[in-house]
Design a protein around this nucleic acid. Structure first.
Lengths: 375, 375
DNA sequence: TTGAAAGCGATACCAC
DNA sequence: GTGGTATCGCTTTCAA
């Protein structure tokens, strides 16, 4: 582009705004605004005219101006369980980290934790619906019970995004989660190759009623059947995310399975399972694959007692969930019904990297308080 | 100033802006601005006063207003090679996808591809420096040669971010890349467990002079020594990212190694290696781990000929590089000197997920043209 | 050294 | 239906 030397940064390259469009059409900016936003009080002819020009010019609204002038308040409720602290805390951190970096003044985020995945959730949602929220981030531990509430939200134009686990029948706008079947499949593929394609394995799961847990289990079993037919699924232990229950059941089950080769734990409830394993003789010969990543697992991964863990990337889930909500609220984007993340395989050699992110909480630096624009 | 009825409705919950601060201190907003931005023309006492209040109120500037009022244009140049299209194209997509969703009008992104990783890069950078850019995203294929140019950029206050590979001696603001040593370590750990801790393996690499390749190779070898002493490293093939060279050398090498159990390819140059493998008898018994993810690998992963590939997440790298540049330019954030991503393990069961992202290019929906604000 | 005022590009109201 | 105009919170410039 060497037509002229020297810098002529005139307004030629500046994108057209509603003002210019109004001028060229000989109407007012109010009219242009009405046309662009499909607001009432404008004749079809005028609207077509405006929209035509907008299209022709490739008009794109200035987000900053819109944000600045819009007086609507946008509030998002974050309703996550406090239970299994490390996981949901990371999801929450992901939400707040990205919220902070994405237009500090655009959206107000309100955090309302409830006691556990299956406790207080309905109440929290009910309360949120009584207030003035335009968006809700939710972890539907009991899909059935929250379904009608989500429907109610939908009726009132409140966007609901489910995080980490779905509420299938409801009309939630979108669900952000890792692909649970892929978690199971990955666990199976690793297990199959680690075991050389044969041996007896046990699956320890949480609630078979929770969509997420069920999908992982099924993904594992299906992949087992398809990919490693010589591996035998000796037992499925349903431990309801309870430490004691998991320990006792596992001690029993492991005792009853001779030549136990592998164990796959589909939830974060793996420490009691590891304890039950450790109590056995020749515990080292068992290949264990767990889920999620939290402090208690670190030494077990380092020593190799856990061969791999399938991380669900909670921090990223939070980030994406909030970003999805944000672009919906601010830019009017309708997200796809599912955003499925790929699970991460964490082993000894990449453990420190995953931990670093867990501690620092960020792949990106965080803005300083009153940071200057330039330089 | 006609005082109407509506004006009395002061929102007390709205965060304080420079106007309020100016009012309470009895100064003008200009003075507050000068203090906050360390601009000249203000007495130290006044500045302290203002900064004190700002701190006390937890003042945070309104990004939208800042963006709207600031007349400075911010342009960033994206200088990536056109070579190894699938990889760098994905990096570029990551940049543009996030740039589109992040304040469309804030920053102008200019894409200037050059012929290959080691060709045209210097010229592209020189040209960019002649123009008016405030930020540059760069893939320093020849660190030595671009180093002085990066220095020059630094002198002129232009932020340079290196993507995927570093320019060690230069004063680039930041380098975004996957942890190459972790790639190697992960490959080794998988290999070791897949092979049951013993057997002969061959490593195929690119240039031992390239930092990235060397680190992967070393990571692999170190992990081998530490974690799986019974596995024997039979050979290291340096193929210089050349198809023919790789094929010929591999055919030779593979022929000379009896009982070849595993192969690890540290670069994207794996197809000729796979061809060399396929030519052997009992090729199925060899466990292969490759790097990166591109169309040619897909069928090989699906059939299990490739057990796993270590993905460097190019799309995410692009995203993060741009986000880092953006927060620097807009919010004045100084990023850490390194942003290291964890590599991804891609196997058959999560292949489709990784491919989906490769195709769709986004974990997040993209804004519609003139999309409305509200629901 | 400081104050006052003019924008930036939208939205949300008025009044016709 | 339409046109006008006052914001929004900040940057920038010109006066004092």
């Amino acid at each position: 582009m060497a037509s002229k030397k020297g810098r002529e940064k005139r307004r030629t390259d500046r994108p057209a705004g509603i003002r210019e469009m109004a001028e060229t059409l000989g109407v007012s900016i109010g009219t242009v605004d009405r046309a662009l936003h499909d607001r009432p009080g404008i004749s079809p002819a005028t609207r077509r005219m405006v929209l035509g020009l907008a299209e022709k010019l490739g008009y794109r609204p200035n987000v900053a101006a819109r944000l600045l002038s819009s007086r609507r308040r946008r509030r998002v409720a974050v309703l996550f369980p406090r239970e299994i602290a490390s996981f949901w805390d990371l999801v929450r951190d992901g939400v707040f980290d990205i919220a902070r970096s994405l237009q500090p003044n655009g959206v107000e985020v309100v955090y309302r934790p409830h006691p556990s995945l299956v406790e207080g959730e309905v109440e929290a949602l009910e309360e949120a619906l009584r207030e003035d929220f335009q968006g809700i981030l939710l972890a539907p531990g009991q899909p059935r019970r929250v379904e009608p509430l989500i429907r109610e939200a939908g009726r009132r134009g409140i966007a609901v995004i489910c995080v980490n686990t779905d509420a299938p029948g409801s009309d939630r706008m979108c669900t952000v989660s890792v692909d649970a079947a892929a978690c199971g499949g990955l666990a199976d593929e690793l297990m199959g190759r680690f075991l050389g394609g044969q041996g007896k394995v046990v699956v320890v799961t949480g609630f078979s009623s929770t969509v997420d847990h069920a999908e992982k289990q099924q993904g594992f079993i299906r992949a087992l059947r398809d990919g490693f037919p010589s591996i035998e699924l000796a037992a499925v232990v349903e431990a309801h995310d309870d430490e004691t229950e998991a320990y006792l059941k596992c001690v029993d089950t492991f005792a009853s399975v001779a030549d136990l080769a592998g164990v796959y734990v589909t939830t974060a409830n793996s420490p009691p399972v590891m304890r039950a394993l450790a109590a056995r003789k020749r515990a080292n010969l068992t290949t264990t694959i767990t889920s999620d990543l939290f402090p208690a697992l670190v030494p077990l991964i380092q020593t190799g007692h856990i061969a791999a863990t399938i991380d669900q990337r909670p921090w990223i889930q939070g980030q994406i969930a909030y970003r999805t909500m944000y672009s919906h609220l601010i830019e009017g984007v309708r997200p796809p019904p599912f955003v499925r993340l790929a699970p991460h395989v964490v082993m000894r050699s990449n453990l420190s990297l995953s931990l670093a992110r867990m501690a620092a909480g960020d792949e990106l630096a965080t803005p300083a308080p009153g940071a200057p624009v330039g330089a």
